[in-house]
Design a protein around this nucleic acid. Structure first.
Lengths: 217, 217
DNA sequence: CAGCGGAACTTGACACCGACAAGCGCGGTG
DNA sequence: CACCGCGCTTGTCGGTGTCAAGTTCCGCTG
């Protein structure tokens, strides 16, 4: 057992800076698969083959680990928003694409989404600069798309873009939350509930678009 | 110490069926003041002067206690919705009142609101009949108001009420969640953030109203 | 090249939690 | 009067986050 370090070198070795990344990745996968309530630092350490106190050396707090998950989530989220914007063919269509992408991201990654917009993060003491940046990037996509939609309005009667963006944001955020947490999901037949949800979501985006048409007079 | 039962009778006595109700009330107050994460059965028992295992005799599970809080919350919520509807002077105004009441209830009772629409409840095994009833009551108010607004549309082009109700629900729910949990609350000066929120909320309700005006042609 | 400092990790402990099992006291019923 | 069961207590178990102290090993300095 002389060089047991060298022997396990090709495998996962958790010296150096590997543990931190491994913890984040494993934690994110647990959050995605089983939810944030099932996340335990000790269990995480167990799965990674390290002692129960090892995580504490990389994260002062469980909240700090959650924060890292949220940070990563906001990056992916912003990327998804930008990709969705690129798919639209005109301003209104872009708004629809972005809105639906918002909801579909939440449905595809409910655990991550809950952490991102959950209380643990928003209650964080230090105003996290890099997280705010990623969040602003996502919100910026929405605001930009809204501004493009409003560009067709006469400048005189054009409503403020932030207020419109707030409305759009609330709508898609609410739809997402109602689906992943709320009472919508457990309607009679699961598949049918999902289909009805998609239908209602499409309708909502259409309604939003109609409300943002420039006044015809 | 003969009749120590009788002696403490006027004060809080937790024999009989009092403990159950006391637990629910205390738990609700803790949830309102410190959030659901700070709720502990043992601490609850401590505050009520009973042993740590006493709550287990009234609730098989911590989730069962949370369920009771949600149930009570939905009752109050439905009452608030109905009261708000009564304040409106016409269909569109009623929709505005109900929508703002929805958000303001969430802001006034964020802990309760999170439990009501949280994962612990919606993941509950048994479909809870009485809770669904209270939830349906609230949703029914919204649907009723929406139907009244849509009554002015020509029947031929009238959109389905449930889809419109879904849109309205999503909007107000999203606004509420974004405020109580999301990144909105911690804008630069707290008071200003709240004022901006109220302004944006009012704008959103106006936008919703505009989208639901019958086509003029 | 020796050795030293510090980073990464381990071991151990503490307080707390939810859940379970067994026991006790008292009121009401036979 | 004896008994039974409800409401609560005491005790225990496995699990968790966090802190303190010890250990191992890498890489840099002299």
């Amino acid at each position: 057992m002389a060089s047991r370090r060298a022997a396990r070198k090709p495998q996962g070795r958790y010296h150096h800076g590997e543990l931190r990344r491994a913890l984040i990745e494993k934690a994110a996968s647990v959050v995605e698969r089983e939810g944030v309530a099932a996340l335990s630092l000790r269990d995480l350490a167990r799965r990674l083959g390290v002692s129960h106190a090892a995580p504490a050396h990389h994260f002062p707090d469980k909240a700090a680990l959650l924060f890292e998950i949220a940070r990563d989530g906001f990056d992916r989220f912003a990327a998804a928003m930008e990709a969705a914007r690129a798919q639209g063919t005109n301003p209104l269509d872009r708004l629809r694409c972005v809105g639906e992408a918002y909801v579909h991201f939440a449905i595809a990654h409910p655990g991550r989404f809950r952490v991102m917009f959950g209380r643990e993060i928003s209650d964080l003491r230090s105003i996290p600069p890099e997280l705010d940046e990623a969040g602003q990037r996502s919100f910026g996509v929405l605001v930009g798309v809204v501004e493009a939609v409003l560009a067709r309005w006469p400048a005189r009667r054009r409503p403020p873009a932030e207020a419109v963006a707030f409305s759009c944001w609330s709508s898609v955020h609410g739809a997402a939350m109602l689906w992943i947490d709320g009472p919508l999901r457990r309607k009679s037949p699961p598949g049918e509930a999902r289909a009805a949800f998609e239908h209602d979501l499409a309708f909502m985006m259409k309604l939003l678009g109609a409300a943002l048409m420039p006044p015809s007079e």
